[in-house]
Simulated assay, not measured.
Amino acid sequence: MPRTGRPKAELILSDEEREQLLRWARRAKSSQALALRSRIVLGCGDGLDNKTVAGQVGCSANTVSKWRARFLESRLDGLVDEPRPGRPPVITAEQVEDVVVATLESTPKNATHWSRAKMADRSGLSKSTIGRIWKAFELKPHREDGFKLSNDPQFVDKVYDIVGLYLDPPEAAVVYCVDEKSQVQALARSQPAFPMMPGMPEKRTHDYVRHGTTSLFAAFNTADGTVISSIHRRHRAVEFKKFLTKIDAEVPDHLEVHLVCDNYSTHKSPSIVTWLEKHPRFHMHFTPTYSSWINQVERFFAYVTADLLQRSDHRSVRALENDIRAWVKGWNENPKPFVWTKPAEQILDSLKRLLQRTTGAGH
């Protein structure tokens, strides 16, 4: 008489269980182990014996028996691995706090800032552990940013004035941010560049020959991003007055003109003052000292530098000037106004917090 073995408990799947098992079996992000267990239970739910299911899914009959029993005992929860306790952490909260506080409030001997190696020697932790702690708390001792606080006695008033122009410009008026990008050099690299290739960036020589300089005068329209520009070999009051005349010619007569400028002496020379008196629709708004960040034309100049000048190779000033004119023309074909979002109060609050952190002032 053939052996029939121990009778198997009947495994019946509900519709919800079958749908979940099918998702686990098909989903690309499921673990391979969970997908296999789901296929095992689905086969058993179809009434197949353990040996047949094992042949279909490619595992042993004992594995099928194990997961059949686990499912009958705990249903879907029985197929999911319980989280393993793992190795207990060997770094205490006190050690982490010590590293963070030391990074923020001290410096190593004979050095201006902490490195992973120096902090590892100090704390007794590994360099990789120090790196993970710094990453978790977003600490980067090897980096620094520069800043210079304005000493302008009218700083607050000027910030309110200029930010007010950006956020709430006057009616029947146009606002231009104006400045000169002076001493733009025509540089000829001493050797041709090696072009970019897969796995290798473009390579340029560090040495070059200077062929002269020029200056880009720009007026950035804060409303639509268009730019009025001129190029002059020098940047004296004479050239600035010519540029103002060009702005006057290009802006419709019925509009008032508000110009945001820095405190460069050229912008305040007697000849410019006289010109402004003869053109009463022009209104000058001077930025606070050491506050070029508030003048939007500086962001425009950054695009000129990154897109054109940083890798330029010009054998003459005229060639450089032609390329700058072409670049500005291309910009004006698809201008990009900058969206100013911070009100004056928020800017002043940020500066107050910076003062409190650095000097304890600003109360």
Rank of each mutant, 00 (worst) to 15 (best):
G86H: 09
T305I: 13
Y303R: 14
K342G: 04
R6Y: 07
G5Q: 02
R236M: 03
S106D: 13
K342F: 10
D81F: 06
H142M: 00
A93F: 06
P288S: 11
L351T: 01
R23V: 08
C59R: 11
N334K: 15
P192T: 02
C177Q: 03
P108R: 02
K51A: 15
W293T: 03
T103K: 07
S182A: 12
S14N: 13
S30P: 08
D81P: 05
L149K: 04
L351M: 15
V90Q: 15
P108S: 09
L320N: 05
K268H: 14
V100T: 05
W134D: 09
I347C: 14
P337E: 11
F155G: 07
V174Q: 14
G78T: 07
K242G: 06
T63V: 14
K66S: 03
E202D: 09
N50L: 08
L308G: 00
A9N: 13
Q20D: 06
W340D: 12
K158T: 04
H314F: 15
G43C: 07
A102W: 01
L34I: 03
Y208C: 01
S312R: 10
T266E: 09
R189N: 13
P108Q: 05
V53A: 11
G146P: 01
R70G: 00
P153C: 03
L11R: 07
T205K: 06
I231G: 07
N295V: 00
V317F: 05
L187E: 11
S269W: 13
K268E: 10
V304T: 06
S312H: 03
T341W: 03
S182M: 10
A319V: 06
G212K: 10
S229A: 14
G362V: 03
T266V: 15
L308D: 00
I347A: 13
K268G: 07
M197W: 01
S123H: 04
K352V: 00
P108K: 00
P192D: 11
Y290G: 05
I231M: 02
P201S: 09
P335D: 08
K118W: 01
S182V: 01
K51V: 13
S316L: 06
N332T: 06
R75A: 09
